[in-house]
Design a binder for these strands. Structure first.
Lengths: 267, 267
DNA sequence: TGATGTGAAGGCATTCACAGCA
DNA sequence: TGCTGTGAATGCCTTCACATCA
């Protein structure tokens, strides 16, 4: 059997990597970059996993999806891991980013100007506000939302970040898609409708807070019922549950509905 | 057997709700609030699930963790569901919030002034910058970070949001914990060390973008190997994978390492 | 010897399919 | 009849434990 091509190899591996592992690989990558800057050349699974807040078995399994790049008895070469993770995550190409909705959040994103590990240069900004059009933010002038399709297409934008109020989100999304954008990061609390070839991820602060609230409430409740009336019926209190456990951050597509969210333009 | 108390009941149920379901409940809650505002009194699992972007079986299972509050052949009463979800998520109490790091992101959070569904009033702001101390942001004056423990304790803050640069995050976290904060929402790309009774969730934009990048790369790669050289060896290309599928947003604790992240103070 | 890499086992979460009830 | 509620089945992810190899 002939050796598979590089593209095929990457594709085959990538297919099999669990979604959850992908998220962690991105985390490992940041840590590894840090280690590299500090001059480290090798790491053990133990060290790396500790820094990432996972156990070492999980880390090794995650890395094994990349291939076998470690040395038994020694550890991993930092540079090798960095390259391999970047390859799998597709960070070898540039992903030009557009930010839509230049409120406070949009400002933060625009000023950021390229995300860690690079590969995500911000190359277009959009808003509705006439006072904002043309004004440079983070060195880049703001364009009007009506121009999203044209500008995105011209500048070959592949990632769109929606930081608008929820009511505007779907229409912004449609225009981004029309402009050829392939990925959308959505801060508006709305479920976006997109064609099959477009990938969406959502960040919802209200949901995050509510999840935290749940855990606190649960703890308070079980403490209450454990410590309260003597009628312990065996399945409640539980001794100190110990660590909060490695919570997979919730996610998936999200809620249409009431206004509100971080996307609003605050001025 | 005697009827269990309300607190016990909530505690017992809460224990059993899968983490993933909790995240979705928060989403349903937002949609339901929207429906309520529009005057709807009942919903079917079909409608609600469509709005939330999940299938109806999952929705029904999620709601069943609350108890049986639907009417067969009819659907759910919107108000009832709202109350029940709020109860389970612990949204009946107020969770006072402190925001640390008043950069762009911090501004956005501060101006938000209370998150959807309420229950999360922002009651303290902190930064290091002398020019910012005392300046009101969103109607609330900024305090110095050194005062975090005292102020948080005085104002009975239970939720801390870290929007600082990564280097400051752990020390901020320690002070929040000292101030009695129980939950932390961390925007800095660092793994925080906290005592067992403190709950942490992390939001990492760089990771989100990299996950998107992965999916695009994967698609491009498999397209390449499917359409390219004739040597199709049977397990690569795959016909159009169809929908991006309901991606559980990645998460868990995260990466220490290089500087960078959204937390920086941009001025 | 010491750390990686990985089958196998176990635990959650999702999906299915239908019983149960208004 | 129609929609909820839920056991059972399936599939995914994590954890364990040890074979493997520098």
């Amino acid at each position: 059997m002939p050796a598979v091509s590089d593209a095929e190899d990457t594709a085959v591996r990538a297919k099999q990597i669990p979604e959850a592992a992908v998220a962690r690989l991105a985390v490992y990558l940041r840590i590894l970059s840090g280690l590299a800057e500090q001059g480290a050349t090798t790491v053990s699974s133990e060290e790396l996993s500790a820094a990432a807040g996972v156990n070492s078995a999980k880390l090794r399994k995650d890395l094994s999806y990349l291939g076998s790049y470690g040395t038994r008895g020694v550890g991993y070469e930092v540079q090798v891991l960095v390259s391999q993770i970047e390859r799998i995550l597709g960070l070898t190409r540039q992903h030009r980013v557009a930010v839509v909705g230049i409120g406070n959040l949009g400002h933060a994103l625009a000023n950021y100007g390229g995300f860690p590990g690079r590969g995500f240069p911000v190359e277009a900004l959009f808003d509705l506000d006439p006072d904002l059009i043309g004004v440079p933010v983070g060195g880049l002038p703001v364009s009007h939302m009506d121009d999203i399709p044209r500008v995105c297409s011209e500048r070959e934008i592949s990632v769109g970040i929606i930081a608008t109020p929820p009511t505007a989100a779907q229409s912004v999304c449609d225009r981004l898609v029309a402009g050829g954008v392939q990925c959308i990061l959505n801060f508006a609390p709305v479920v976006l409708q997109v064609p099959a070839h477009v990938e969406v991820r959502k960040v919802d602060l209200a949901v995050e807070l509510q999840i935290l609230s749940f855990h606190v409430a649960r703890r308070a409740d079980s403490a209450a019922s454990a410590g309260a009336a003597g009628e312990n019926q065996g399945n409640t209190g539980l001794p100190g549950t110990g660590r909060p456990a490695d919570n997979g951050s919730g996610g998936g597509r999200n809620g249409a509905g009431t206004d509100g969210g971080l996307g609003m333009v605050v001025r």
